[in-house]
Computed example of a mutant assay.
Amino acid sequence: MYSGLNGAMNIQNFLTHLIVRVPFAFMIILCVQISYLLEINKQEKTFLTQQSLESQLNYQQLKNQISPHFLFNNINVLTSLIEENPKKAVQFSENLSNIYRYFLKQEKQDVVLVNDEINFAKCYLALLKDRFEIGLNYTINIDEKTAEKYIVSTILQQVLENVVKHNTINEDNIVSINITSKESYLVVENNKIPKFITEESSKKGIENIRKRIAFFTDEIVVIESTTEMYKIQLPILETI
């Protein structure tokens, strides 16, 4: 009987220790798991922050390529005009100054309203019209709904500069540019009168456009090119 009583007490003691120690052990395991998860979360945040900073740096580098390029090209034009047509050079200089001021303002924003980008494009096209006169024509037809959406800033200026870069434009070779909206794209189309260039194009301008847009959307830049026509479709963003 004593042996049975002693055995019952041992079982009771074992159960008491089990009840006390199991929650304690469970709490230790739980704390270890929480600590591990917090450390993993911290590492993930650090990694994402580094990725974000790297992406911002890469994007800024792409943007930094635009402003000097824009200014350099147009200063070259101005220099030529000073020799050929001083009066026209003065007008071009004034317009360039106003546009570059606006350009710098827009450049501080990564994404802008389509309407703002179109207004900037109109200013730039007017500058090109001063330069090429009857050699360049353009039309713009954007619906109101699209105008209230968003697009990567100064992207149209890059596209228009690409048109000028690759085509012969004068009173005998007239280039027409048409800017429209289609579904989720802004479409820029022009007829082609290619310049005679012995060196193959580096296509850095188009690559810059593609990379800049890729930071904000998975939609890709769509390009159609034939012997007579060039069309580029730029993705429109629904929100910022």
Rank of each mutant, 00 (worst) to 15 (best):
I213L: 14
Q12C: 14
V112N: 04
K105E: 13
N167V: 03
D143F: 02
E39N: 12
L57T: 15
R210C: 10
N191Q: 04
R212N: 01
V77E: 00
K165L: 11
Q157H: 04
L53I: 05
E107M: 11
M9G: 10
N76M: 00
G7C: 13
N74I: 07
H69R: 09
S202Y: 13
N208G: 07
I29V: 09
N13D: 05
Y185L: 09
K195A: 12
N137C: 06
I174R: 09
Q109F: 06
E171I: 03
E94Q: 15
D130Q: 15
V22T: 12
S201F: 06
V22A: 12
I197S: 10
L234N: 02
E183H: 05
K182H: 05
L127P: 05
E117A: 00
V114I: 09
L38H: 03
T198F: 10
Y185N: 12
T154M: 10
N167T: 05
I140G: 02
N64I: 05
N6D: 08
K231F: 04
I193R: 01
K122C: 08
S181G: 07
V22Y: 10
K88M: 09
Y100I: 08
S67W: 00
K145Y: 08
I40L: 14
V111F: 01
Q12V: 07
E199N: 14
Q157I: 05
I75A: 05
I193C: 10
T16E: 09
T239R: 08
N41W: 02
F24T: 15
H17Y: 15
G4V: 06
M9S: 10
F47K: 15
Q43V: 10
E148P: 00
I19T: 08
I155W: 03
K88G: 05
P235Q: 01
E189T: 13
Y100Q: 02
S52Y: 11
Q43K: 15
F92G: 00
F216R: 00
V159H: 11
N137D: 06
Q56V: 14
Y124Q: 05
T227A: 07
I34A: 15
K165V: 07
T217G: 11
I236L: 08
Q12T: 15
K192D: 05
A147V: 02
A214K: 03
D116L: 03
S153P: 01
F215P: 03
F103R: 02
D110M: 11
Q50A: 15
N173V: 02
I151S: 00
C123P: 08
A89F: 07
S201A: 11
I40A: 07
E200M: 15
E54A: 07
T198L: 04
E84K: 14
V20K: 14
R131E: 06
K203L: 12
R131C: 02
Y230E: 03
K105D: 14
L237D: 00
L237I: 03
D116T: 00
F216W: 04
Q91L: 11
K122H: 10
L71M: 13
E171G: 06
P194Y: 01
I197A: 09
I82Q: 01
A89Q: 01
S67N: 02
D143K: 03
T49N: 12
P86S: 13
I179P: 00
T227W: 06
Q43R: 15
